[in-house]
Design a protein around this nucleic acid. Sequence first.
DNA 1: TTAGGGTTAG
Length: 519
Amino acid sequence: MSQRDVVSWNALLTALWRGGRGHLPAARRLFDAMPARNVISWNSIVAGCLAHGDLAAASAYFARAPTRNVATWNAMLAGLFRLGLVEDADRLFAEMPVRNVVSYTAMVDGLARRGEVARAREVFDSMPQRNLVSWAAMISGYVENAMFAEARELFEAMPEKNVVACTAMITGYCKEGNVDSARILFDGIRVKDVISWNAMITGYVHNGHGEEAMRLHVVMHKEGVKPDHATLIAVLTASSALALLRQGKSVHAIAIKALLESSTSFSNALMTMYSRCGSVGESEFVFLNLKGQDIVSWNTIIAAYAQHGKYQKVIALFNEMEVRGLTPDDITFLSVLSACGHVGMVDVSLKLFDLMSSKYGISPRAEHYACIVDILSRAGQLEKACNYIKDMPLEAEKNIWGALLGACQTHGYVQLGELAAEMLVQSDSASSGPYVMLSNIYAAAGMWGQVNRIRGQMKERGVKKQPGYSWTEIANEVHMFVGGDASHPEMRKIIYELRKINLHMQIVTDETHIMAELA
DNA sequence: TTAGGGTTAG
């Protein structure tokens, strides 16, 4: 048996377990049948077992291996972290007879990913030598744990910065909301790759700069960088945010050509795009044709129907999840609760809220409380809503007070409105919303002196009301509308159509109420 | 054998 033969066997072995789920037994049979093995064969089978989550088998091979090199130990170390077994990884690292830069880096990365950033940094500082990978692992560890100042400090201390470290830092800036710094860094990268482009495009989308994301995508195209799976998802997300159906459809077409539509994450983004652009039907079509539906797919279709006010569909899909043995998660409940809220199903939503923790073991987050407060407030049950806020184990967030304030405006509660507005101003003093709403409450109650007082306060504190705006894409042209602006040449026609839509909405809402009560 | 981007809600 020549050395060359072992190399071929090893290549076959690795290819086999990398082939996907269900291929590990075949790889193990091949390993057992191999006429000769070297240390790389042993490393491969250990890595294969770990990649498939079979720790017992990996440990058995590891123990049986006649020779181990540092790579064997490192494979085992990285595998333990991937399985979330931090203590075992710790022990292994302590027992290692030899460590190299890879062992230390695996430790830094593994600890940081599990949230143990301080210990990761200790290991990083104790390293006899570091390479680009070690630096990038530590920086991205900080970013993942939202420690942006630390990430930046380390990035600046990095002796030579490569595209990977820059991309990690770009992501950090974007997560912090600092897209401008991200862009400066991005523009400074000499050799950008597709991942750095994706990071910048996605950063824009997540910060509400959909147009800039689209522009950058065009530049990327012009520079001849081939978009990949993640690029298409980013562009779809931007299309969703901007409600650009044509753009979204063209991405769909590209994906069909690139045979990407079978990808679950891509299809999920596609469903969102269709739904946000008003085509729930298309969204459901994608959902029904998707083979590998995951929890995100279900959440997406439920959210799509919730946003389109189809309460029955939402409940039907939620029940179907149960039938198929799928467990809803916290996000599923947000959509279902919001659908309940829009049709005023108070009792159903309170029951679901209880079920969430009692049956599914999901502890409600501030957003879930906000939903319940919103539902109760809209139904005019403001005292009950206040009780929920009082009993909350968490601190009430902005949207909770916002929901309450909105209801105070609708139902004319002055005192409670004052409290809610005050809480909102405390958390965000620059926003004009609470001032305007409180002023409306006072105006409705005929308290003109208070209205003037609020106006004075706004002036004093430099709070300005941002005009609301919307836009729509018709025949390849974007039409923009700004609140209070009546300068459109076809204003009369627009108002006429709006009245028709309003009337139609009223009828549909009434119908939905009746149907919901009958169901 | 170690590092960067990607789907759902608000």
